[in-house]
């Protein structure tokens, strides 16, 4: 009873904190100064059509680098906590049907293609490395759920993850050497506005982020799932 009372008090406190947000909303139509600066300058400076991508990859690029590092730390912690001890391996009694397996195998390359499309066009259309990486991870998840594969090659996964992370920092340092600063994508030619090969190194950086995020999320999924050994017993 006293617990519930304390919870209600905490809730009222949180409501008191949130109430000013609801009551004093910005009413002016104009955007804040920083946002209008970005909107004015980003297309000319970087040549990317998607302003959100310009902000994530370039203006706030250091935040994104830190964010990817946090994601890596969380993935490593999940893998450490759920380390396989050997005695939790159960035996699954169901076997996936042929239709499920071939359907999954048929859809898998299309999903991967879609994910690659999303992160390659991150500077032109909505989407980018994070979304594309997640789509790729779900493609591998489909293989796992349909029973086409039982486990992934951890060497390849960690190789993709660490190489793309390394290349991300290398591209950022290239910006430091040949352009204005760390993570500056303008050391590559800007190209025509709105084409695939444009906006300097933004598509390169976002593709590397996509590969890294995809490998990390797949690592989380792989660590979380029940380790089962399939037997040839049909349900």
């Amino acid at each position: 009873m006293i617990k519930r009372f304390l919870a209600i008090i905490a809730l009222l406190g949180a409501a008191a904190v949130l109430l000013p947000f609801v009551l004093n909303l910005p009413t002016e139509e104009a955007l804040p100064e920083l946002a209008s600066k970005y909107i004015e300058n980003a297309p000319g400076e970087l040549g990317a059509a998607n302003l959100v991508t310009s902000i994530i990859v370039t203006y706030r690029g250091l935040d994104t680098l830190g964010e990817v590092a946090v994601l890596f730390a969380a993935t490593a912690a999940v893998g450490l906590l759920l380390k396989r001890t050997g005695n939790e391996v159960g035996v699954s009694h169901w076997k996936s049907s042929e239709i499920l397996k071939s359907g999954g195998g048929f859809l898998f390359p299309l999903i991967i293609l879609y994910g690659v499309y999303i992160f390659l066009h991150g500077h032109l259309t909505p989407g980018g490395g994070f979304q594309g990486g997640v789509v790729i991870a779900t493609g591998f998840l489909l293989l796992l759920l349909s029973g086409s594969v039982d486990s992934f090659n951890h060497t390849v996964m960690s190789l993709v993850e660490s190489l793309s992370g390394f290349a991300y920092v290398a591209v950022a340092l290239a910006g430091l050497i040949w352009a204005a600063g760390f993570l500056d994508p303008r050391f590559l030619p800007q190209g025509d506005f709105g084409r695939l090969f444009s906006a300097g190194a933004i598509p390169v950086i976002y593709s590397l982020i996509g590969l890294k995020v995809g490998a990390e999320l797949l690592g989380i999924l792989d660590a979380m799932r029940c380790k089962v050994r399939r037997e040839g017993v049909t349900a």
Partner: peptide, 10 residues
């Protein structure tokens, strides 16, 4: 739309 895609996928 960027946030919408991320939220739907993740």
């Amino acid at each position: 739309p960027d946030v919408a895609m991320t939220e739907a996928a993740i």
